[in-house]
Amino acid sequence: MSDSPATMEHGHSPALRHHFADVEQQRNAASLGMWLFLATEIMFFGGMFCAYLIYRISYFNEFAAGSQSLQLKVGAANTVVLICSSLTVALGVRAAQMGKRRLLVVLLLLTMLFGLTFLGVKAYEWHREYEEHHVPGFGFDAKNLIEEHPKLGIDPQHAQVFYSLYFAMTGMHAIHMIIGVGLFIWLTFMAWRGEYGPEYYTPVENAGLYWHFVDIVWIYLFPLLYLIDRKPLG
């Protein structure tokens, strides 16, 4: 299509598809499509946040005790790691906009490094919860929660609801992170081949939007799961 007379006549950018008026409109359309996908993601995570809200009100003591059993410092450190990865993605999109190929590759690699660090720390936390028998199911045991908070009258079934939501939400978040790292592997390869530049960087921009969205989900998961019930309990 790029050799058609119309294209030659107007001197269009080779990245411009013929059904768009200009590069700006093409970029806005791609970005809008990504935002529509993110809107569905808000509803996807929204269902779990809604379940969390309902059960937190219903089983407040178990949620408070469960929240205190998580390690605040590890969760905060992971939040810092994720914010750093958001910075490297934002700088990566900027590098693509300016056509700095080498910088883009380095920033995408750094993002993956931060993403994998986050997943590693998360795996450490899950392992610790597994060892404490806090994984819902046959091996579940709320003994240490009851010992630590004898006055709260903790019901192990209700504590399981907290850990079910904890594993569902952090697990779904981790799956999104893994998909994100997969996207960045592909993007790094394409960026290294010089596919992206000021004319065309839509995949970098959209993967960036996805990564920032996953970061925002964690920005809410961190206070809801780790922080809200930190003050001394009865």
Binding site: L72, K73, G75, A76, T79, V80, I83, C84, S86, L87, A90, L91, R94, Q97, M98, F222, P223, Y226, L227, I228, R230, K231
Partner: peptide, 26 residues
């Protein structure tokens, strides 16, 4: 194309807010 200085500023604000929220929860 936003300046990299703006991105670093946002990053610092996010870091500070993370520390503040972790501290104030206790």
């Amino acid at each position: 194309i936003l300046s990299s200085k703006l991105y670093y500023t946002i990053w610092i604000i996010l870091m500070v807010l993370t520390v503040v929220t972790a501290w104030i929860a206790t």
